[in-house]
Simulated assay, not measured.
Amino acid sequence: MLFGPDLTGPDLARRPARGARVVTQRFVGTLPAGHRMLFLVRGDGRLLPVTRAGGPAPRPGDLALLLSA
């Protein structure tokens, strides 16, 4: 399961109406408050998803795809 049990398809579809956006940010140490990581793109182009089991450990320079609050 992608993103964990609290981020279902219907929930993700409703979030934009409440102001949530999918944004990208270079990882530089911590994720911004109020954001959830959905995917991580490594420097070599690999796309790593966050799943029910957890997510990849970000490294400096990785590109994070985040869901804003």
Rank of each mutant, 00 (worst) to 15 (best):
L38T: 06
A17S: 13
D62R: 03
V28A: 14
R15L: 03
P32M: 12
P32V: 15
L12S: 04
A33Y: 10
A69R: 12
L47H: 13
G9H: 08
V23E: 13
P32F: 11
R21A: 08
F39H: 09
G19C: 06
P5A: 15
R26T: 13
V28I: 10
S68K: 01
T8G: 08
L65Q: 07
T24E: 15
G61V: 11
V41G: 02
T24M: 14
V23A: 09
P49E: 04
D6A: 15
L48D: 13
H35V: 07
V50G: 00
L40P: 01
L31Q: 10
A17T: 05
A20Q: 00
V23G: 06
A64W: 01
T24K: 14
Q25K: 08
A53M: 10
A69Y: 03
D11E: 15
V22S: 00
R59L: 15
P56S: 05
L47C: 14
G9A: 15
R15M: 02
T8P: 03
T8A: 07
R59A: 15
A17Y: 05
L67S: 07
V22A: 01
M37D: 00
H35L: 05
F3R: 03
A17P: 01
A20F: 00
R18H: 08
D6R: 14
L31P: 02
R46K: 12
S68P: 02
R15A: 02
P32C: 15
D11W: 09
V23L: 14
T51M: 11
L47R: 14
T30K: 14
P16G: 02
D11H: 11
R14S: 04
R26M: 08
V50E: 00
A17L: 11
P58C: 05
D11V: 12
R26G: 11
L7A: 06
L40W: 01
F3Q: 03
L7G: 04
F39P: 01
V22N: 00
A64Y: 02
M1L: 09
L12D: 02
V23N: 03
G43P: 06
A20N: 00
L63M: 07
P49F: 07
L66W: 02
R46C: 04
V41E: 12
G9Q: 15
P56C: 07
R26V: 11
G45L: 12
G54D: 10
F3N: 01
L2D: 11
H35F: 10
R36P: 03
G54N: 07
M37V: 07
T24C: 14
S68F: 00
P56W: 03
L48I: 09
L48P: 13
R15N: 01
A13N: 11
